[in-house]
Amino acid sequence: MRKQQWGLYIHIPFCRQKCFYCDFPSFAGRERYEADYTDALCRELLDQGVLYREKWGRPATIYMGGGTPSVLPVKLMERLLQMLCRIFALTENEDSPELEFTVECNPGTVDAEKLALLHTYGVNRLSFGVQTFDDGLLQAIGRIHTGRQAAETMQLARKAGFQNVSMDLMYGLPQETLAMLQHDLEAMVALKPEHISIYGLQLEAGTAFAKMQELGKLMLPDEETVEQMYDLMTSFLPAHGYARYEISNFAQPGYESRHNLSYWQDVPYLGVGAAAHSYLAGRRYANGTDIPSYIEAMRAGKSVRVEEEPADRAIAMEEFAFLALRTVRGLSREAFSKRFGVSLESVYSKTIEKMKQQDLLEEQDGFLRLTSLGMKYGNVVFEAFLLT
């Protein structure tokens, strides 16, 4: 019987091409490391995975992200999946809820053989990085696939037996219009994914787009158009059967991402791989990002995990509030009190009252949550919840 609900994250840092907006720890042109990296992952899984299975039982969720996990060659992917099956008995029934096992894939990096392999080894959820169906926009943001390939990849996934598929969409892209987003939304719901994640473009330091912006070479939609895009997607998706359950996530009933929800609900998770993060027993850890160093450390039986500076009480409260408020359900007064030994009101009474007066927060059944307006201006609320 599981002693503690927990999640497992596996980081695959390889990409065919680095997207122009991406600041994740992922790298193109590192194919020479793929085999050794897979070996290193298996070593870390044997070490840490077995440890936490013995402590807490099988994880409730597994998420393989990146990077682009689907760029791994079939033989390496199979080796990794075999190791996961060996440690966690993925394809065996246990006295526990069904495991949610997600693998991120990009159109153009999967085929029928690879999808069949994933399905055989217990993967039951796919997350496709589509971003847009417009070929011009795809090229402008550094994606390697076409809109047609995205649709074809969904067809392949269905034929392989996948009944839980998520797709990512972005808006506010260079020279994107409201009509282009309308087309993307229509094209996506026509494919009937069970889950849709949709993100506004953010310019992150160190990315190709950030450098282009500095040089005045990035033509982005104006603020009014981006706001119209937000309004469009938040009305369009619910009207087509996708309920919003988190600021950036929509799902058909019963298909919310359990792994992502665990991040927002203070559930511990183990991260393996270069640059992976862990949250265990209330402490946060990070693995080093350098791929060769990670490989060598695993060969030598050394840990690459470094504990991040423990958050003080105020920061821990802020983070607990931020994460919970991202969800439609919101922040539980009872959970806050249980976690910190004080009432939510004793810490945030003035903030809560101010945000209510601005129609950004509301109460329901012991939960404090963002209103529709609050979802739109979430950063304003999160900033108000800062204690330091």
Rank of each mutant, 00 (worst) to 15 (best):
R244E: 04
C85R: 09
D47L: 15
E224I: 04
F209I: 07
A140F: 01
M167Q: 09
P97S: 06
L118T: 03
R86A: 07
Y294W: 13
Y348H: 04
K302I: 07
L280P: 08
L218D: 05
L370G: 13
Y199W: 05
L323F: 13
A281K: 14
H11N: 14
A116F: 01
F385G: 07
E309D: 13
L215R: 15
L181G: 01
V189Q: 06
D365T: 10
Q364N: 14
A314K: 15
V380S: 09
G273Q: 06
C15L: 08
A150K: 00
L173E: 00
L41M: 09
L115K: 07
H259T: 08
V380K: 09
D39W: 11
E307K: 12
G341D: 05
I295A: 09
P69F: 10
M298F: 01
S197F: 02
D39V: 03
E104H: 01
E78L: 04
H183D: 08
H11E: 10
S70A: 08
L201Y: 00
C22K: 04
G374M: 12
T68W: 05
L218N: 05
Y199K: 01
L270E: 11
I291F: 06
G161Q: 01
F336G: 10
G66N: 03
Y377E: 10
M170I: 00
M212G: 02
F88C: 03
Y348I: 05
A150C: 05
D290R: 14
E362P: 03
M229I: 01
S197T: 10
M317I: 13
Q163I: 05
V328W: 10
E256K: 15
A112S: 15
P221K: 01
E104P: 00
R326M: 06
R369P: 11
A281R: 13
L368M: 12
N249D: 08
K302Y: 10
P107V: 00
S197Y: 01
M355D: 07
H259A: 05
V267K: 10
Y269P: 07
L344G: 08
G142L: 04
E345N: 10
D134Y: 03
M64Y: 11
